[in-house]
Computed example of a mutant assay.
Amino acid sequence: MQSRIEKTLANLKSQNKKALIPYIMAGDPTPSVTVPLLHKLVAHGADVIELGLPFSDPMADGQTIALADERALAGGTSTRQAIEMIKEFRKTNTTTPVLVMGYLNPVEMLGYDKFAALCKDAGIDGVLLVDLPPQEAGDFPKALQADDTNPINQIFLLSPTTTDERTDSVIKNCSGFIYYVSVKGVTGAASLDVDEVNAQIARIKAKTDIPVCVGFGIKDGKSAKALASVADGVIVGSELVKNFAECGTDEQKITQAVDRLLAKMDELRAAIDG
């Protein structure tokens, strides 16, 4: 049975459209913001949503998202609470795919089986654990795929420096889509070479039919449009998350930040579709 992610990306491909995948951090800037914002992201063009699981040492993330981790943790958002937010979202949205992105330590503290069970119960569609390479995943992918009625995709990263051997390993173990890191560096990095990304995606697509979505370094409609022309979807995180940097718990500032974030979503959606 196809997952929601697989169905969504296949449907977009049949319409010659590309996915817009926004990333936000669960619990940032305050826990009460997240669920309403998930719904607003859908209303402003999100095809799939990536929700960050707060962690104290986010090695793949630049300063913008690392600070979002700190804000979410300071506000009391745990891995369990982040998953509960998706469960709340699912009460009124059963169609938009949601994947969680995080790190291995909190998952190991819960236990793989418990984490997988919580994800299934909440209606989560994909899991990306940055520091869990495919060769060390063990039975975790099987635990995620165990329920045929709600299969959960395990998503892995490829980057400009990935070897052919690792690429083959990711293709063998990945489902849903491959997350291609478009730059050498952390989230929010500056330098983006579209021609190089195009060449790398062509290399990946020569080996697999799994969709390839691109993240890291996408800052505006122009870069989103350029990458959407070569990939199956674009993932935008830091450019959205940065709006919450100075909000604190001030409700007016949070409302203004959400408005800016959604305006950026509109820009990205229009550029990708245009």
Rank of each mutant, 00 (worst) to 15 (best):
D69C: 12
E70Q: 15
A43H: 07
S56H: 05
G45I: 01
T77E: 15
H44I: 04
L73R: 04
L38P: 02
P54H: 01
P36E: 06
F55Q: 07
A66S: 12
I65C: 09
K40L: 07
G75K: 01
D57G: 11
V48F: 14
V42Q: 12
G52I: 00
T64K: 13
A60K: 03
M59G: 08
E50F: 11
A68R: 05
L51W: 06
L41V: 00
E70M: 14
F55R: 03
R71Y: 00
A66N: 11
L67G: 13
G45P: 05
L41S: 05
K40G: 05
A74E: 10
V48K: 15
V48T: 04
A66V: 05
A60P: 01
V42R: 14
H44C: 06
I49N: 15
H39A: 04
D47I: 03
D57A: 09
A46N: 03
M59E: 12
A66T: 05
L37S: 10
D69R: 11
D61M: 02
G52S: 02
A68C: 06
I65V: 02
G52F: 00
V42T: 05
M59L: 13
M59P: 07
I65R: 04
K40N: 06
T64S: 14
P36H: 13
T77D: 15
Q63A: 12
Q63Y: 15
T34S: 12
V35P: 03
A74G: 08
V42L: 15
L73A: 09
E50Y: 11
T34W: 02
A60N: 02
D57T: 11
A46C: 09
D69W: 04
K40F: 08
L67I: 10
V35R: 09
L73T: 11
L51N: 13
E50H: 11
P36F: 11
F55W: 03
P58S: 04
L51E: 04
L41F: 05
G52C: 03
V35M: 10
R71I: 02
Q63H: 14
V35F: 11
L67F: 10
M59I: 14
L38N: 03
L38A: 07
L41D: 02
L67M: 13
L41A: 04
D69V: 10
Q63N: 15
P36M: 10
H44G: 09
G76T: 05
I65Q: 07
T77Q: 10
K40H: 08
G76W: 00
V42S: 13
G45R: 10
Q63E: 09
T34F: 09
A72P: 11
G52W: 00
E70K: 15
G75P: 03
L37H: 14
M59V: 14
A60F: 04
L73N: 09
A43P: 03
L38G: 07
K40R: 09
T64M: 12
K40E: 06
A60T: 08
R71T: 01
R71E: 01
D69Y: 08
E50G: 12
S56I: 00
P58L: 02
V42E: 13
L38Y: 06
D47C: 13
L53N: 07
D47W: 12
R71A: 02
K40C: 02
G52K: 00
L38S: 03
Q63M: 14
Q63P: 11
D47L: 14
P54F: 00
D69P: 14
A74M: 04
A74H: 08
G45M: 12
I49E: 13
A68Y: 01
G62T: 02
G45A: 14
S56A: 08
L41G: 06
I49G: 14
L53Q: 07
P58T: 03
M59S: 12
